[in-house]
């Protein structure tokens, strides 16, 4: 394997009539990686995964699995499989029969099939009695595990997920996210996970690919995407952020010292709400601004403030809730941060 990626896309495209769902896409997935593909609905991520598993034919480009071209192979001959958003369990089969389905297709002897199914039940922490249970007797979380077990019984090179957790309630989702992460580490398989929830992607994955309107915006580990987004779309997608367009001068910002560097390069300056702090009367920072508090929100350990700048621009700041007499709505104050805590997005 070494340097051959397990999955590689070369200029993969997909158009429906006159609508281009996917612009030429390039991607390399490492063996054993957990890659999350994240994007808002309608960004083409479901189309992408349907191309990857073979349920749709690409309009152009190619898909390579361990150096072999697979985009012309039909889905039932590809060594990959997918956990559906609906799970797509077979309602007329028991839990055990669902899990054994891919093995039955390969004519595995019944005894070996059952043994493997029981192993998988154990791996997914389902009791052995579930082997004979009907699908409609299982809860949502149990069905997730059965669908996973069935996919693992197939023993795929890559396991794709099409938002399988999106229909579950918050707490169960959180539990299953961690289980999935754990399962990934125990099985050592390559997981490619599609979701619209960045939070989900950050908890589980090694790398995140952010998609927008049929293109990858950025592909990097979560920490890097958070600290150094390559576009304002990614920056905003990653959570609450303040963006300042510096192409027409510094505007509301007062730049000194290292902060001056940003003024000479055109782009968008990103300041995270938690990077901002309140400046004392004689205090200065490399980047500073004066602002008026318009609202405050309690976030538990921190307080979030909505503020407006002299130009009318609204920004957000988050401060630790250390002292009781923090700023109140209506107060005027000065905010600042270090140049090293900010990030300049070149494209603007």
């Amino acid at each position: 394997m070494g340097d051959i990626p397990i999955l590689q896309l070369n200029g993969l495209t997909k158009s429906f009539d006159d609508f281009t769902a996917l612009h030429p896409m390039d991607l390399k997935v490492r063996d054993g990686e957990f890659l999350a593909i994240v994007g808002p609905s309608g960004c083409g991520k479901t189309t992408l995964i349907r191309l990857l598993v073979g349920m749709e034919d690409p309009s152009g480009g190619s898909i390579w699995l361990r150096g072999e071209r697979i985009d012309e192979i039909p889905a039932n001959k590809r060594p990959t499989c997918m956990v559906f958003q609906s799970l797509a369990l077979f309602p007329h089969r028991s839990v055990g029969q669902n899990i054994e389905f891919p093995l039955k297709l390969r004519k595995t002897p019944p005894a070996a099939r059952k043994e493997r199914a029981l192993e998988l039940l154990a791996l997914l922490r389902l009791p052995e009695e579930y082997y004979h249970k009907r699908i409609d007797q299982c809860s949502g979380g149990e069905r997730q595990r059965v669908a996973l077990a069935r996919a693992l019984a197939f023993d795929p090179e890559i396991l794709f997920f099409d938002e399988p957790l999106s229909a579950l309630d918050y707490r169960l989702r959180k539990t299953l996210e961690k289980e999935l992460r754990d399962l990934h580490q125990r099985t050592g398989k390559t997981f490619v996970y599609i979701t619209h929830s960045l939070e989900e992607a950050m908890v589980m994955s090694d790398r995140i690919a952010i998609m927008r309107a049929g293109r990858f915006e950025q592909i990097a580990p979560a920490a890097e995407i958070y600290a150094r987004p390559t576009s304002s779309f990614v920056a905003e997608f990653m959570g609450e952020v303040n963006l300042f367009d510096l192409r027409d001068g510094s505007g509301d910002l007062l730049l000194t010292g290292a902060g001056n560097e940003f003024a000479t390069r055109p782009g968008t300056l990103m300041i995270r709400p938690e990077s901002l702090r309140i400046l004392g009367p004689d205090e200065n920072a490399e980047i500073s601004m004066s602002a008026q508090v318009s609202a405050e929100y309690m976030l538990g350990s921190r307080m979030q403030y909505a503020l407006s700048l002299p130009s009318g621009k609204a920004i957000t700041a988050e401060l630790l809730r250390e002292n009781a007499d923090g700023p109140k709505p209506g107060d005027s104050l000065r905010l600042g941060c270090a140049a090293s805590a900010c990030h300049l997005i070149p494209e603007g």
């Binding site: 349920m55 499989c81 559906f84």
Partner: peptide
């Protein structure tokens, strides 16, 4: 017959006859 059950079977390696 749900469409996704057919698609899932196909994805899991089933032929048309299967």
């Amino acid at each position: 017959v749900p469409d996704d059950a057919r698609q899932a079977a196909f994805d899991l390696g089933a032929s048309r006859w299967q």
